[in-house]
Design a binder for these strands. Structure first.
Lengths: 353, 353
DNA sequence: ACAGCTACCGTAAGCGTTTACGATGCTATA
DNA sequence: TATAGCATCGTAAACGCTTACGGTAGCTGT
């Protein structure tokens, strides 16, 4: 005999009472409860999670799906680790646990999620790395599985999401650059069909229009999340007949490569070319000149995600009455010296390189 | 009626047969199996994992515990993401899934693991960030839960582990430095009671002895995993009456801060002070001069971990007969220019700074 | 003395699968 | 034709827990 039955037998009481005692249910005498608790600790009893889940119809776990293809081979990223921490801090308050589903790099997004989600492993899930048309949203909606997305899918509606405010960041960045006199502004977008890439580029175009700057597709690059990408982009840019005086980096890490290539060409970042990165990464804090970028507090973002996902679970409706969550998470400008210099008379003529 | 029962009813067969058909068991007619499979797909049936786990007494999941306290707030680290990928690739071949337990930064290591492990959520677990005396080993041993450790606990025995070869790396590093003429060699060790920190320092002392260099505790620093730590260490080192001509960095990221502080003092890394880092990180690939460090193939390490953990699970003994796993994973020297210059006549006199 | 309460506890039916065991009908063999 | 063997399937117990329901005992107030 194992588990709760053994406890019950040893104490000479029924399994029902043991269960009630263990779970803090009201209908149990204080003495009895203490005896049960003591005995449980003594023999090292812990309830079987599978049995609990089956009996209760809930798992007390939420799954966070991350895409290794995007995060692993790429360069440094403590982004998710920071977010996990925030999510956890909220979930534990409500007796929930966070478990991470790392989708292998070769695997298909959709089928990977399907395996876990439809088997009732999680009470709810958190999605990340959202694509422009992310079928996972439809999957979860159809299966009626509570979820929240970190990012958005443009082809779906009626789901909870929290997205980073790339729009305002872009507006701010463009305002700074144009204010400094820049008219030729290059941009790097994420490679792959990520939704935030579209937002990023669309807002860029919109701001160009606002300032009556014509859109030049030769200034648009699609890059992966490595510092090398910055190097290659600048390398290509230097061959341009009319090179830009500024560059916007969706992946701030690319600044490292940008700086490097510029200096190889005898140019100085921030002076000969303005550089602005989106999101700060610990790895770029040492850059000289300091990179102008946008700060994001990962723990706070994680906590919002945690609350959002709980709000999707029916039994938490009393705590989180509003499950309709659409949050645009602001990012705060952290001015650096990488865009401090206007394109002036002493700027080296990079078009002649 | 739900689940398998519904399927059975619709097809006019028993739940037993449905289960057998779904699970590829032999005792079922090919036609019947196809009918079951079709029906399952049609109504979008997926087996309930809790019920399966309960009935089978296994969960088909292995848990990988990571410590956010160590990984999150710290600077860049794609280490785990890379390892996850490797582990997965092995596990999926055997129908197992990887789930990550991110231990929150405030939480106690031990009790966090206890909650998951003893509840039968995982068939086996992988431990990381091993401490000198890591009580988690005892916990898992006592509960008879299969596991493998990435790293070692010095106070335990008879468990499977894979550790990085910091010994050979240290020997190699010291050989290089001493060969170049260095006699004053500083070292940074991990802050916290991590086992590899002890190995690192012990081997350092051992090598000093081999070369008849006296041990100077003023050259030993305990640091966290941030680039800032490198800055602070050098800052302190420069005040030393007899400053070192070389420094060994357990966290390669610290090289960034080291370079920065050296240059602020008008010194050149690799020329005025040799720098060697352990483990390569994508974030330091851009460093100039290139950092001498030790390469580690994360995917391969992950795959070994995956095989090791499967070997601990009884039902895989036919595939992995040897569960006694004690692997020292080599790291390959990647020579850079950061330790190319011997301390020579043209070296700046840093003791006077 | 009796109804009505409360506090506490036991009983047993689930939860959705898996799987040992036995039953059935059919084929092949003697 | 009898029988063994095989392919196929149904039956039902088991996995370990939760929880609705009912029962008992003691206590209250009239």
């Amino acid at each position: 005999m194992r588990g709760i039955a053994r406890l019950a037998k040893e104490l000479g009481i029924s399994t029902g009472t043991v269960s009630r005692a263990l779970n803090g249910k009201p209908d149990v005498n204080a003495d009895t409860r203490q005896r049960v608790l003591d005995a449980a600790r003594r023999i090292g009893y812990a309830p079987n999670q599978a049995a609990r889940s089956l009996a209760q119809g809930q798992t007390s776990a939420v799954g966070f799906m991350v895409d290794l293809e995007r995060e692993s081979a790429t360069s440094s990223d403590n982004f998710f680790m920071g977010v996990f921490d925030g999510v956890q801090s909220v979930l534990t308050e409500f007796g929930m646990d966070l478990l991470v589903m790392p989708c292998p790099s070769g695997q298909d997004h959709y089928s990977y999620l399907e395996r876990f989600a439809t088997r009732g492993v999680f009470d709810a899930v958190i999605l990340a790395s959202m694509q422009y048309n992310d079928r996972r949203v439809g999957l979860l909606q159809a299966a009626n599985i509570p979820f929240v997305a970190l990012g958005r899918s443009s082809m779906h509606s009626d789901y909870a999401w929290i997205d980073l405010d790339f729009v305002t960041s872009m507006v701010t960045a463009m305002e700074r650059l144009v204010g400094l006199g820049h008219r030729r502004i290059a941009i790097t977008c994420p490679k792959g069909d990520f939704n935030f890439g579209h937002i990023f580029l669309d807002t860029y175009k919109q701001e160009l229009a606002r300032y009556n700057i014509s859109y030049d597709e030769n200034l648009v690059y699609y890059v992966s999340r490595t510092e090398v990408s910055g190097y290659d982009v600048v390398d290509d840019l230097l061959k341009n007949d009319d090179p830009p005086t500024a560059i916007l980096l969706i992946y701030e890490l690319a600044a490292i490569g940008v700086y490097r290539r510029l200096r190889e060409a005898g140019l100085e970042p921030g002076k000969d070319m303005a550089v602005i990165g989106f999101r700060d990464d610990p790895a770029i804090q040492f850059l000289e000149p300091s990179l102008t970028c946008f700060e994001l507090e990962l723990g706070g973002l994680g906590r919002k995600l945690g609350e959002a996902v709980l709000a999707q679970i029916p039994r938490f409706q009393n705590h989180f009455p509003d499950s309709h969550i659409e949050i645009i998470q602001p990012m705060e400008l952290r001015p650096g010296d990488s865009d401090a210099f206007p394109p002036g008379i002493d700027q080296k003529i990079i078009r002649s390189s």
